[in-house]
Design a protein around this nucleic acid. Structure first.
Length: 456
RNA sequence: GGCGACGUAGCCAAGUGGUAAGGCAGGGGUCUGCAAAACCCCCAUUCAGCGGUUCGAAUCCGCUCGUCGCCUCCA
């Protein structure tokens, strides 16, 4: 299996530190508003990677942090006149719901920044002792970038280049403009925690270093996040972690997903051009959203559009139907299921080439449908389709019949319509079908009788 | 300005040296009372453009044009 690592900018053979086990850390959210489809893209990507690694037989330990204290949370909590903690809880719960709706499996742990402060203080203290950090007179502590010769290796930058375009804050207390804060001195009224340098709160990059090291050890196999985190966030995590432990590499494989665009721009909270996951789920199924994401290669940018989502919705329905159509054939479909699975694996082994893997699923679906039409037993092929679908996190659930309440009434109408059709009263039969369709109930007449499901 | 991606059919999107996967849309057909679903057939002599290397290039090299991301919070 080959995985592209941002650090080396090449596809590398994947070899975890411990045989059979993979430690995986993915940067989580800052919960101060509802998550958007860009977040969905990132977490679907890493969910698929996790599922595939488990499919390959690895035991995966998956950690995702929660940045439950930062400027945005403080600002927003202040304007809503609620404690920062309450705001963060509210939107973290919302995030958890969204992830569940998208069939994204929860991490093994969701450590929160505010509960990991002792670990961070310990790490910062050690960095100061080693000369990699210093406390300024405000009580903030900064990382000394010049103390690390290979600072910039992840993002391919060097200090001189960065200085050219750097925004230098006037009256900065930092030794070097690129030094970054690990511990922020508290301003009056802000939530704060005691530290050897006075009341304050952790800097953003510090929590991920402390948690990755604390939960997964000094060398993590996979660390993931969006490409927008490469610099400065992940660069600074490397700096803190490698300087604190002396162990290199902090991360063996750095994975970054491409960013989701809305129109010509990146979808982001700060630009405000976003579609929340909750809104997307009003119109599209979890499988449709997932299929939209995995139909494109994870390192490439992807543009959110209704056309693309509509296409994915149709595609997802096609796969679900193939996975569940009934056949009472006696003779099994002659299809080399092993080679189908091999194609799937070959695609996924090549740096998680999900678009190609998805193509094998559609090919399999066609084989299943053809086999059914020929009166063959397709159950084993259907099992394979469901199995490979689940590796990609697709439920391929049977068409939705919604809450059961309307069910008996729809069945009643179908019975009446059946009689009408038998009596060649097609005008009335069609009217029932059309009226139900306008209410979102799709009827399909089949040789064995009519079936119905809700249109998404 | 520095760093990094990308440009393949109407749309989405694989393919990194051997002659263009897959999905959606569209056209024709089978099935159906009609639809829907499903199936079959068709749908890029061509991969932003121009040069070069090669027996052979969408794939490698150079240049040009265009788009995006990061360098400030961001998945």
């Amino acid at each position: 299996m080959k995985i592209y690592s941002t650090l080396t900018r090449t596809k590398e053979e994947f070899l975890p530190l411990k045989e059979g086990e993979v430690s995986m850390y993915v940067c989580g959210v800052t919960p101060y508003m509802d998550a958007h489809v860009g977040h969905a893209m990132s977490y679907i990507t890493f969910d698929v990677i996790r599922r595939y690694l488990e499919y390959k037989g690895y035991r995966v330990k998956y950690i995702q942090n929660v940045t439950d204290i930062d400027d945005k949370i403080i600002d927003r909590a202040l304007s809503q006149k609620i404690p920062a903690r309450e705001l963060a809880d509210k939107f973290f719960n919302s995030f958890t719901e969204d992830m569940a709706c998208l069939n994204i499996r929860p991490a093994d742990a969701f450590p929160r920044a505010t509960l990991e402060i002792p670990k961070m203080i310990e790490m910062i203290t050690s960095l100061i002792q080693k000369g990699h950090a210093y406390a300024a007179k405000s009580g903030s502590v900064y990382f000394r970038v010049r103390s690390m010769p290979d600072y910039g290796k992840l993002s391919g930058r060097n200090l001189e280049d960065m200085m050219a375009g750097a925004r230098i804050e006037p009256g900065d207390e930092k030794e070097h403009p690129m030094d970054f804060v690990m511990w922020k001195a508290a301003k009056p009224g802000e939530p704060s925690w005691p530290s050897p340098w006075g009341e304050g709160r952790p800097g953003w990059h510090m929590e991920c270093s402390a948690m990755a090291l604390g939960y997964l050890g000094e060398s993590v196999d996979i660390h993931g996040g969006g490409q927008d985190l490469i610099f400065p966030h992940h660069e600074n995590e490397i700096a803190q972690s490698e300087c604190a432990t002396g162990v290199k590499p902090f991360v063996r494989y750095w994975l970054h997903n491409g960013l989701l665009k809305l129109g010509e721009e990146k979808m982001s909270k700060s630009l405000g051009n976003l579609v929340t996951i909750k809104d997307a789920l009003k119109f599209y199924s979890s499988d449709a959203i997932r299929l939209f994401v995995i139909s494109s290669y994870y390192r490439n940018p992807l543009t959110y559009s209704l056309d693309a989502l509509d296409a994915s919705q149709k595609g997802a329905e096609r796969l679900s139907k193939a996975a569940h159509i009934e056949s009472n054939g006696q003779f099994p479909l002659e299809l080399d299921l092993g080679s189908v699975e091999d194609s799937f694996v070959a695609a996924m082994d090549d740096d998680f080439d999900t678009p190609k893997a998805v193509a094998t699923l559609f090919d399999l679906a066609r084989q299943i449908n053809t086999g059914r039409d020929s009166g063959l037993d397709i159950s084993r092929a259907q099992q394979l389709l469901l199995k490979l679908g689940s590796v990609l996190g697709l439920t391929l659930a049977e068409p939705d019949t919604g809450s059961a309440e309307a069910g008996p009434f729809i069945e009643l109408l179908l019975d009446i319509r059946k009689s009408l059709r038998q009596e060649k009263q097609f005008g009335l039969a069609d009217e029932i079908r059309n009226r139900l369709a306008s209410m979102g109930v799709v009827i399909e007449d089949k040789p064995e009788g009519a079936s119905w499901h809700l249109k998404r």
